[in-house]
Write a protein that binds this DNA or RNA. Sequence first.
DNA 1: TTCCTTTCTTATATGGTTAAGGTGAGAAAA
DNA 2: TTTTCTCACCTTAACCATATAAGAAAGGAA
Lengths: 347, 347
Amino acid sequence: MVSIKDVAKKAGVSVGVVSKAFNNYPDVGKETRKRIMDIAQELDYSPNRIARNLSSKKNSAISLISSGFEENDQKDNNSFELFKGIYFGSQQLNLDFSIYFTDSFKQQEQSYVQFCRERNIGGAILQGIKLDDPFFKEMVDTNVPCVLIDVVMDEPQSCVGSVTIQNRKATEDLTAYLIERGHRDIAIMAGTKEAYVNEERLKGVQDALLKHGLTFEDKMLFYADFDDQQAYEKAKTYLKTHRPTAFVCLSDLMAYGVMKAAQELGLSVPEDVSVVGFDNSMIAGMTTPTITTIAQDFFEMGRQSALLLNRIVNGESKENEIYLNYELLERESVQDFTNSDRKEHES
Amino acid sequence: MVSIKDVAKKAGVSVGVVSKAFNNYPDVGKETRKRIMDIAQELDYSPNRIARNLSSKKNSAISLISSGFEENDQKDNNSFELFKGIYFGSQQLNLDFSIYFTDSFKQQEQSYVQFCRERNIGGAILQGIKLDDPFFKEMVDTNVPCVLIDVVMDEPQSCVGSVTIQNRKATEDLTAYLIERGHRDIAIMAGTKEAYVNEERLKGVQDALLKHGLTFEDKMLFYADFDDQQAYEKAKTYLKTHRPTAFVCLSDLMAYGVMKAAQELGLSVPEDVSVVGFDNSMIAGMTTPTITTIAQDFFEMGRQSALLLNRIVNGESKENEIYLNYELLERESVQDFTNSDRKEHES
DNA sequence: TTCCTTTCTTATATGGTTAAGGTGAGAAAA
DNA sequence: TTTTCTCACCTTAACCATATAAGAAAGGAA
């Protein structure tokens, strides 16, 4: 492997000069600099970032620590969009981007600080951590800068940022959308209890129900781990004995599961039962019928988190919490019981 | 940041002993070792892998270099399964796993060796490289061990491995499956010309056509870049003036696009036109109708590639090319014109 | 002669590994 | 009993690929 030494030797200078040449130090002769650069090109040399980071104690990388990605909620391509966004943001900042994986179990064996130090991670974007994960608890005590995707801390921390949407408000809108269209008997298909977004989204549904004078009943709430199969099974069981007019699903994948259950029982969506999802995953536009959902921009979420992390690391961040916009995407999976009234109203 | 020095100081020994303790050297006293480990635990210390790799000149990581992942063919979750598999394999080997991204453009700016040296990559799994990518050309000359996903070299290289399925044979089976069911007028929706799998899969379709005495005509071949939208558009245009009985699509996503085009034109799938896909992406089981396709195990592909890379790096590899099994998954998107005959035959 | 620039070298640092050398205690040999 | 050997255990120093502060040499200007 060609190293800085080889370049130095060939250029007839010490390694220090080569290093300086690459770091734009002023005390390198113009001709020497050119010679060094030419030789570097010739030898196909470029400085080793790893050694560079080690030596300079700076860090020129955006790291994503993705937790629990082997679980079901990753069946969609949302994470991929997020990756892309972070990649794009890193490019903008001229930083390297790498992804590391962990899971709830591994987190018990190795602490967050250890994980970061082993890999020279000066700051990280964290995705997929649950509220009861060790990393989440440790984060506050350590001062490794980080940005949380879709999790917001109770108390703001100087070195912890968040990028998310107003999940609570979004499901409130979504539920209100159903209520405004005449739905009164609404079942809820929730995800994983330990997920922050699940908590928030659930609160939002309750907010809407209460605001419209409806009651929230536990027997209409199901947890399906953000998994289509589980949602399918729970919905099927429930639909055999009950007939809600709508299902609020806290992810599109679960919405798909619910629709499948309904359709297999001979129910039409949305005529017999309406279904709404969340995320605007790719599948939401591919099912029959297509799913009305909350669209969030995962790419932008990734990009923003890269930029925010960079600001936090450099101590430039003013606002550590970024809320992105979302949009209620009307598609085909909701029945409007007030259809005629509305049409009259519109005309 | 706590380093080996802090542990050494607190334990009252030199850094060398601490290092040796962590690397299971025999010349460390039993009591000293215990003391060091206790202190390490207390200080939340674990060795920095980066510095370790730098110093020992070994490498304890499996790296995935993913190219062109911002393009359309990543809309599905196949890559995710692959990631999971590599992660799993790395865990088995007790190695770290990280992903790096690049694209065709970036590859022109920085050579493969440079990319690897900058990141201390001793060996990499390469995904998504095209036949005309710079990295692909450079790989042969350099001796950085690597494993290619879904690409096989013309001439075997000692430090280049491959993990894939028999793509050519698979599409031959798939096409034969259609022909056996009475299809004669078969259109082909291909992906990206520069992709190795596209080449192979296309050859397989031709193989089947020729073997069954059918001719391969260019006007029935379309390239849609593995993208559903492009496939949709090209299929729609074609279907307005032609009526093939079947479409062989070289990916499920494109199959979805073709089905959508057909359905919008009032054609039923599979009654009016049959469609087959490739990959068994998640969506293939979610569409209406579900898509008959070639199922491949991306998780296993990832796992195997991690194991193979490890063998190549350690010089233990006997066979550098691994072909995984695939399966023709019969679902709902194909019409059997010989249905009645077959039924009689079966009974 | 002194001082200042410019341009280089040297030395030390990063966080570790590892070969080679040193120390002291107990055992074997003289 | 003294000397030598052995062995367990530790330290030292060089190394990985780089950064950077501090020092030094050469040349020109004041």
